[in-house]
Amino acid sequence: MRGNIIKYPRDNIDTDVIIPGQYLKVHDYAELATHAMEGLDPDFHSKVKEGDFILSGKNFGCGSSREHAPIALSHCGVKAILALSFARIFYRNSVDGAFLLPIEIDQDAYDGISEGDEIDIDISKNEIKNITKNQTYKMKPFSEIIGKIIAAGGLFKYKPDQD
């Protein structure tokens, strides 16, 4: 999976800035997408392209349980978030709803990858390649259940009885 990086080099990007509370009443996915990252980056919509990845620090998606957050980002075209760590509800919403991939990275990848870099993510090898800078990093492997739900295409397509 290939895409370009939009980098927010900070920790604790919370759901209130990913999709502010006033839009919690909105359930139209396309409309939610128009407000993504409104609380943090007014230029997000001029930057984001189909297939992009967001890179950020620790505890990405902390705050509320609103599934609006991964929905809004994925409907802008964001396919994966690369972060040092994730808040738990954002993480499982992303995976169980099959909206985007939450990829845990290490400090080297966080420091080494810059805004605009072209990245190739290979989850079968747990590898992240920086095409622009010709560097390779390891991603943290998904836990068994997360890997299976991602492979199935979301929680509703995952059949636990067949394990």
């Binding site: 349980s65 599934e67 509800i89 499982r92 919403n93 169980d96 929680l155 509703f156």
Partner: peptide, 23 residues
């Protein structure tokens, strides 16, 4: 997310998103 509140009654109380609640 604040479903955690009710753990004060001695329950396992945990917040989830829409897909998980639908499940």
């Amino acid at each position: 997310s604040h479903t955690n509140t009710t753990g004060a009654l001695g329950a396992f109380a945990c917040g989830l998103g829409h897909t998980d609640i639908a499940y």
